[in-house]
């Protein structure tokens, strides 16, 4: 491995990693929101909407992100819907992640006994108040491991962003390999930068998880 090559590549990778993180965080945040709304619709058994949500979850969970992106980026413009690569990457990630997050939230909410909801309602709370103050906080503790796994999974999924010509880590690595043939250095930096992004998430996640398990032991 050549240290000079590594040093000269470093700024490119840093740039690319920032893009990956920025789009990843945005997409995951949106996926959280979508998941939360979808889970609430399923939990409250809202007619019609719940069928739509179910269909969406099945579709998002059973198709690969790469294909979703191809369709969003190359297919949709044919209908006159133009998007930027960045918007495409973020919305693709949000579409995929929303389905996974919905399932995680839903199973957490369903793990809370319905009588908890009833006791909140019998205190005069509205459905929304009971959900947000009583059911959701408890469900979050239950869902946390699944949500965390989804965050890591979605962060990893950003690696297909290069397919819609976003200059992320994969794009940079492939580009450099093609241009200069410094395969070893290019791949080394690729691995290092993904580790820099993913390891902290994974470590912090398992730390919180352990704390939650301890706190929830007597629930």
């Amino acid at each position: 491995m050549n240290a000079d090559v590594l040093r000269s590549y470093l700024p490119l990778y840093k740039e690319a990693a920032l893009l990956t993180v920025r789009l990843g965080v945005l997409g995951i945040a949106l996926a959280f929101l979508i998941g939360l709304v979808c889970a609430a619709v399923l939990y409250c058994k809202i007619p019609v909407l719940r069928t739509v949500v179910r269909a969406y979850i099945e579709l998002s969970r059973n198709t690969p992100l790469l294909i979703q992106l191809f369709f969003l980026y190359y297919g949709l413009p044919k209908l006159g819907i133009r998007t930027t690569p960045e918007a495409c990457g973020v919305s693709g990630l949000a579409f995929l992640g929303g389905g996974y997050m919905a399932e995680a939230f839903r199973s957490g909410m369903e793990a809370i006994a319905p009588i908890q909801l009833e006791s909140a309602l019998s205190l005069g709370m509205t459905q929304t108040q009971a959900l947000s103050a009583v059911i959701l906080p408890q469900a979050l503790t239950v869902s946390f491991p699944a949500l965390m796994a989804n965050v890591i999974f979605l962060m990893k999924e950003t690696s297909v962003f290069s397919a819609v010509s976003l200059m992320d880590l994969m794009f940079t690595a492939k580009d450099l390999i093609g241009l200069y043939y410094n395969t070893t250095e290019s791949l080394f930096l690729l691995v290092v930068f993904y580790l820099l992004i993913l390891l902290p998430i994974s470590l912090v996640g398992s730390l919180i998880e352990r704390r939650l398990r301890y706190a929830g032991a007597g629930l």
Partner: peptide, 17 residues
Amino acid sequence: IMPQMVLLFLAFFGTTR
């Protein structure tokens, strides 16, 4: 922890090299 894409790159570009 590695994205599958990275693993593919390692196997396809890396090991051949």
